[in-house]
Computed example of a mutant assay.
Amino acid sequence: MIRILIVDDHPAVRAGLVAVLRSEPGLVPVGAAAEEQEGWRLAQRARPDLVLLDLHLPGGNSLALCRRIKALDPTTKVLIYSAFAHDELSVAATLAGADGMLDKTEPMLELFDGIRRVHRGEQLLAPVTPERLQDVQQRVPADDWPIVAMLLDGTSDADVAATLGVRQEELEGRIERLLARLAPTAARSRA
C-alpha cells in the first residue's frame, strides 16, 4: 500500500486524483491540499509515503515545499505532477529533492506506474545536462552558483553552510529564493 498526499490548487484535479487513486489497488490517498501551507501541515500530520505535488501553488513555492518535505522525512517520495513538468526543470527539481516529474497530460496508467516506480526508489527526472546547467547559470546570481553546484553534487546543507561560512537559516533563505527563480515562468507569473 502506498499512502499518497495530493497538493494541487485546482479542486477538480484534487477530487479527480482522489477518485482515481482510490480505484487503483494499492494506492491510498491520505489527504489533499490546495496550497503550500496546508500541504506542509498535512505532510507533517499524515506522513505519506509519496506526495503528488503541483508546481503551481498560489502564493507559494512548490519547490521549497518539496525541500521541506524531504527534510522532514527523506524517505517520503515527492513526485512533481504538473502541466509545467518539462525537462527544463530537471535541475530545479533535483535541487528541490524531487524523486520524479510527470506531466499532467500523461494517461492515468502512466501516473500509476510513475507512483509505483518512484515509491520503489527509481528516479523519474531528466538528467542534468550541460545545456540545462547553462540555462540555470544564466538565471541564478553568481554568488549562488556555488550553492547549486554543491547541492547537485550531493553536499549536505550543513556542509554547504559551513563551506560558505553562513548560518543554516541564511542558506535556507538563499535556497528558497534560488528555487523561486528556477520555478516555471508561467507558474511564477500566476502566483
Rank of each mutant, 00 (worst) to 15 (best):
D9I: 05
H10F: 06
H10A: 06
P11H: 05
A12S: 11
A15L: 15
G16K: 13
V18T: 12
V20A: 05
L21C: 08
L21H: 04
R22L: 13
S23C: 11
S23V: 04
E24Q: 15
G26F: 00
G26D: 03
L27Q: 02
V28K: 10
V28R: 12
P29H: 07
G31T: 01
A32Q: 09
A34C: 08
A34I: 01
A34K: 11
E35W: 00
E35H: 13
E36C: 08
E36G: 04
E38N: 11
G39S: 13
G39C: 10
W40I: 12
W40R: 13
W40Q: 08
R41Y: 10
L42W: 05
R45Q: 15
A46Q: 11
R47S: 09
R47F: 02
R47E: 10
P48L: 04
D49V: 01
L50G: 00
L52K: 02
L52W: 02
L52A: 02
L53T: 02
L53Q: 04
L55T: 02
H56P: 00
H56S: 09
L57M: 07
G60H: 14
G60I: 10
G60P: 09
S62L: 08
L63H: 12
A64R: 14
A64V: 14
A64T: 15
R67P: 07
R67F: 10
K70S: 10
K70C: 06
L72M: 14
D73E: 15
D73S: 15
P74N: 04
K77M: 05
K77W: 00
